[in-house]
Design a protein around this nucleic acid. Structure first.
Length: 811
DNA sequence: GTAGGGTTAG
C-alpha cells in the first residue's frame, strides 16, 4: 500500500487529482490517531532520541523565539518532546504553505522511528505541491532506507537529481548510507567518488556503508585511506571501524583500534565500549570482552546487551542468563527487544525450547510484534530446538520478510530433514521480491543433495551462475556434494577439477563422493593425490576415507588408514571413525571382533555404533547380535524407528511372529511410523515419483505390464500378484507385502521404458534398498543390458551386467 | 529546522 503510494507520488510533479487533495486532511487525522494507538508499542529509542533532544534543546529555544507564529512553536515543541500525535494535530490545523513546516514534521517522525508515517507526510507534501528543499531529503532518505528497497531508493535519488540537490554534502552523505543499506554499495561508492567536497561524515558514511554491506575489509581500507589523507577520525569513525573488525573477526586489527581508542582517551565512551565488547565477542574472545565489561563502572542497557550477546554467541549459555539476572538486579535495567534477541541463541544451544517460548511469550506480552529481526531469530531458535511447527507459525505470520528470514526458515527445514519443504520454500522465495544470496544456497544445496536428481542439480547450478553468485569454496564444495548425492558423479568431478583454490573440505568432499558411489579405489588415489599436492588431511578426511573403505570393503586399507591417523597425523579417532571401522568389521561378519572392538573403544558407544552392529547382524541374519544391539540402541535412543523396523523384519524372516507383533506394538505405543518408501526417476526433465503406498492410483497399467514381463523374465514368482488376477482391493493388500511392487522396481521399469536404449537408468529412493530388490535389480541390469544406478538413503549402487558396485553388502 | 552513532536475525 505504502510502496505504491510513494512510487506513484514520486512520479507526479503537481497535484492533478482533486479528490486526493481533498482527502489529505482527513488522512492526517487518521494518521494522528494511529500514532496515538501505536505510540506505546514502539520500541523506545531512548539513547538516540534523548541525545538528539538534548542536543537540540538549545536550538529549539532559539527557534521558538524566532518563530512568528505560535503554532510553529507548538509544533516544534511537541515534536522535540516526542508528543507526535499532538504534533500532528497542530500540523493538521496549520497553514502548510512553507517547506520548513513539512521538513520539521518529517524529521520528527523519522527521528522517532515512524518511517512509514514520515513517508506518508512526504507524499502529501508533494500532493500539496510544496517543493522539497535540500533539508527535506536527508530525512526522506533515512525513512526510505528503513522502509523500502533499492527501487524506491533510486526514485528518490532521481528526484534529487531533478531538483538539483545532488551536490549537497548532507544529501550525498545520506545517499551513501541509503544505497549501502539497500544493498547497492557500488552506488554508494559512485556518489562518494563524485563528491566535490567531503567531510568526516562522508568518510564515516562510506566506512559505515561497507560495514552495512558486510564488507569489513573495505571498511578498514577506507578508514586507512581517510587517515592517509589527513582526515581526523571522530568517535563515530572508531565505532564503525570496530564494527568492521568485528565483521571480519579480525582480532588483530580490533586490538590495534583498541590501542588507538586508549591513546585518544576515548575508552570511557559508552558507545565505543559497547562496540568493543561486541567486537571481542564476535572474534570469539569472550574473556577479553568480560574483563573489559567488568571495568565499566556505569553500564547502560546497550553495554549489557553487548555482553549478553557476546556470551550467547560464544555458547556461554549459563552466563548469558546469569548476566540477564544481574542486569536487572544490579543496574535495575529492564530487558529490551535486543536483549530478548540476544538470549535466543543460548536457548538453541541449550535445546531449551521452553525458555525460548517464554521469551517469545514475553515479546508478545510486551507488544513487540511485528519485528523482523526478532521473528527471524525466533525461527532460527525454533528450528534448532526441533519445533518446526512454531518456526512455521512465526514465519507465516510475518508481515515483512527479507532474505535472512527466508534463509532462516529454509535452514530450519533442512536441519530437521524436511528437505522437500525446504525446496518448496526456496521456490516460493524465488517468486517474491527477495533475492537468494550465498547463504540461501549454502542452506538449500544440502536439501537438493538429499532428495534431488541430476537435472534439478544442474538447474540450481545454473541459477547460481545466473544470479552472479561467486562460486567460493564453500558453495563449490556444497555443490560437489550435491552433484555426487544426486547421482551425477561426473559433474561433481568436473566442478572439483575446475576449482582454482581447493581447500581440504573440497578434497574431503570428492573423496566421499567416490566413496558413496562405491569407487573406493578412486577415493584412495584421490587421497594420495591430495597428500602429493601438499594438503594436510583433517579428521573429516579420514571419515571420507574410512567410509569409502567400508563401503567398498577395502579391509586392509581401512585398517591401515585408521592406524595411521594418530601415528602419522596426530589425529585421535573420534566416534565417527570408530563407526566406520565397525561398519568394516560388520561387513566381514566378524561379530566377536566387532563386540570386542566396541568394548575396548576409548569412547562411549552411541546408537550409531550399535546401529552399525545391528545392520551387520541383519546381513548375516544373526538374531542374537541383533537383539543385543537393539537393546543398547533403545537404552540410548527411545525413538529409533530404523532399529524397530530392522528388528521386526529380522523376526519376520525367521517366522518369530510374536516378536514381530511385540516390536510393532512398541512402535505404536511410541508413536513411531515406518517411513513410506518412495523412489524418483527423471524423464525428459520431469521427475516421476513412485511410492510403496496407493500404487494402484498412481501408476499406469503399462508400468505394471512391463514389470510383469520383467519379473517373469528374471524368474521372480509373481503369479500371486498378477495385475489381471485379482480385484484391485485384494491386489493392493497383496502388493503391500510383496517386494515385487516396491517403488524402486516401478521406477526402474518406468526408467527403462522412457529413456533411450543404452542410457543408464538412475533412480533415487528415500530408504535403503531391500535385499530382494537388490537381487532383482542385478538380474534386470543383465537382462536389459542397461546400467541401473540406484541411490538409496546411504549409498549408490551401480548395477551392471548382473553385478553391483557395493559387492552385495550395504546394510 | 539539515547528514553520520554503539547492542539485534541466516
Amino acid at each position: 500500500m505504502a510502496t505504491s503510494l510513494l512510487s506513484f507520488h514520486l512520479q507526479i510533479e503537481k497535484p492533478n487529482n482533486v479528490s486526493q487533495y481533498q482527502i489529505f486532511p482527513a488522512k492526517i487525522q487518521v494518521l494522528a490517531s494511529t500514532l496515538k494507538q501505536n505510540h506505546n508499542r514502539r520500541p523506545k529509542i531512548a539513547t538516540t532520541a534523548i541525545t538528539r533532544k538534548q542536543r537540540r534543546s538549545g536550538r529549539v529555544k532559539q527557534s521558538l523565539e524566532d518563530c512568528n507564529t505560535s503554532s510553529t512553536g507548538k509544533l516544534l515543541s511537541f515534536l522535540n518532546s516526542g508528543c507526535l500525535n499532538d504534533a500532528l494535530q497542530v500540523f493538521d490545523k496549520m497553514n502548510k504553505s512553507n517547506t520548513f513546516i513539512w521538513n520539521l514534521t518529517i524529521r520528527g517522525l523519522t527521528d522517532s522511528g515512524y518511517f512509514q508515517e514520515a513517508l506518508e507526510v512526504y507524499c502529501r507534501m508533494q500532493i500539496e505541491g510544496i517543493r522539497e528543499d535540500k533539508f527535506t531529503f536527508p530525512f526522506v532518505i533515512k525513512a526510505c532506507t528503513a522502509v523500502f528497497g533499492s527501487d524506491e531508493a533510486k526514485k528518490v535519488h532521481s528526484r534529487i537529481i531533478k531538483l538539483g540537490f545532488y551536490e549537497d554534502i548532507y544529501v550525498c552523505n545520506a545517499l551513501i548510507i541509503m544505497y549501502a543499506k539497500v544493498g547497492s554499495i557500488e552506488n554508494s561508492e559512485k556518489i562518494f567518488d563524485r563528491m566535490l567536497v567531503r567531510d568526516v561524515v562522508s568518510w564515516n558514511s562510506m566506512i559505515s556503508g561497507y560495514v552495512s554491506s558486510r564488507d569489513g575489509l573495505s571498511s578498514l581500507m577506507c578508514f586507512q585511506k581517510m587517515q592517509v589523507l589527513g582526515i581526523r577520525p571522530d568517535r563515530f569513525s572508531l565505532v564503525r571501524l570496530i564494527g568492521g573488525c568485528a565483521l571480519e573477526q579480525n582480532l588483530l586489527s580490533g586490538k590495534e583500534v583498541f590501542a588507538q581508542v586508549i591513546r585518544n582517551g576515548r575508552e570511557f565512551n559508552l558507545m565505543i565500549q559497547s562496540s568493543l565488547i561486541d567486537m571481542f565477542g564476535k572474534c570469539g574472545e569472550v574473556n577479553y570482552a568480560e574483563r573489559f565489561f567488568n571495568r565499566i563502572s556505569q553500564k547502560n542497557l546497550v553495554v549489557w546487551n553487548a555482553m549478553i550477546g557476546a556470551y550467547s554467541m560464544n555458547h556461554e549459555s549459563l552466563k548469558t542468563f546469569s548476566s540477564l539476572k544481574k542486569m536487572q538486579e544490579d543496574d535495575n535495567l529492564r530487558p529490551d527487544i535486543i536483549t530478548l534477541i540476544n538470549l535466543l541463541p543460548s536457548c538453541s544451544k541449550l535445546g531449551a525450547l521452553g525458555l525460548g517460548k517464554e521469551i517469545h511469550g514475553r515479546a508478545i506480552k510486551n507488544d513487540k510484534f511485528p519485528h523482523l529481526v526478532l521473528e527471524t531469530s525466533l525461527i532460527d531458535m525454533y528450528g534448532k530446538c526441533g519445533s518446526l511447527i512454531l518456526a512455521e507459525f512465526v514465519f507465516f505470520q510475518m508481515k515483512q520478510k527479507n532474505i535472512i528470514s527466508w534463509n532462516a526458515m529454509i535452514t530450519a527445514y533442512v536441519q530437521n530433514s524436511y528437505n522437500k519443504e525446504a525446496i518448496d520454500t526456496f521456490k516460493n522465495l524465488k517468486n517474491g521480491p527477495s533475492v537468494p544470496d550465498e547463504t540461501t544456497f549454502a542452506s538449500i544445496l544440502p536439501a537438493y543433495a538429499e532428495i534431488a536428481l541430476p537435472k534439478e542439480g544442474k538447474q540450481i547450478h545454473g541459477y547460481i551462475s545466473k544470479l552472479g553468485i561467486s562460486l567460493n569454496t564453500f558453495i563449490s564444495n556444497a555443490m560437489i556434494h550435491m552433484y555426487a548425492k544426486c547421482g551425477d558423479l561426473l559433474s561433481a568431478r568436473k566442478l572439483f577439477d575446475s576449482m582454482l583454490f581447493k581447500d581440504v573440505v573440497a578434497w574431503n568432499t570428492i573423496i566421499m563422493a567416490y566413496g558413496i558411489h562405491g569407487f573406493g579405489v578412486s577415493s584412495l588415489s584421490l587421497f594420495t593425490e591430495m597428500l602429493n599436492e601438499g594438503y594436510e588431511p583433517n579428521r573429516s578426511t579420514f571419515v571420507s576415507l574410512l567410509s569409502s573403505c567400508s563401503i567398498s570393503g577395502n579391509w586392509d586399507e581401512g585398517w591401515k588408514y585408521f592406524n595411521s591417523m594418530r601415528r602419522d597425523y596426530g589425529l585421535d579417532p573420534g566416534i565417527e571413525h570408530y563407526g566406520c571401522m565397525l561398519d568394516l568389521l560388520g561387513r566381514f561378519g566378524n561379530f566377536d571382533c566387532a563386540k570386542r572392538f566396541i568394548e575396548e573403544m576409548p569412547l562411549k558407544p552411541t546408537s550409531r555404533i550399535w546401529g552399525s552392529l545391528l545392520a551387520a547382524s541383519r546381513h548375516y541374519r544373526n538374531i542374537e547380535v541383533a537383539e543385543l544391539a537393539a537393546d543398547r540402541i533403545f537404552s540410548l535412543d527411545n525413538d529409533n524407528t530404523g532399529c524397530c523396523v530392522l528388528l521386526s523384519n529380522m523376526y519376520a524372516d525367521v517366522g518369530r511372529w510374536d516378536d514381530v507383533a511385540r516390536v510393532r506394538d512398541l512402535m505404536k505405543n511410541r508413536g513411531l511410523e515406518k517411513t513410506t518408501g518412495c523412489s524418483i526417476v527423471e524423464c525428459n526433465g520431469k521427475t516421476y515419483k513412485f511410492t510403496n503406498k496407493n500404487r494402484l492410483k498412481i501408476e499406469s497399467d503399462i508400468i505394471f505390464q512391463v514389470l510383469d514381463i520383467i519379473s517373469r523374465k528374471i524368474g521372480d514368482d509373481q503369479d500371486n500378484y498378477n495385475v489381471y488376477t485379482f480385484k484391485p482391493s485384494v491386489l493392493l493388500k497383496r502388493r503391500a507385502k510383496s517386494p515385487i511392487f516396491h517403488s524402486v522396481r516401478l521406477a526402474i521399469c518406468f526408467g527403462l521404458i522412457s529413456t533411450s536404449v543404452g542410457d543408464p537408468v538412475l533412480v533415487r529412493m528415500n530408504t535403503r534398498i531391500c535385499e530382494n530388490c537388490h537381487k532383482a535389480t542385478k538380474k534386470i541390469s543383465k537382462m536389459a543390458n542397461r546400467e541401473i544406478i540406484v541411490g538409496d538413503s546411504k549409498i549408490y549402487h551401480h548395477f551392471k551386467n548382473g553385478c553391483c558396485s557395493c559387492g552385495d553388502y550395504w546394510r
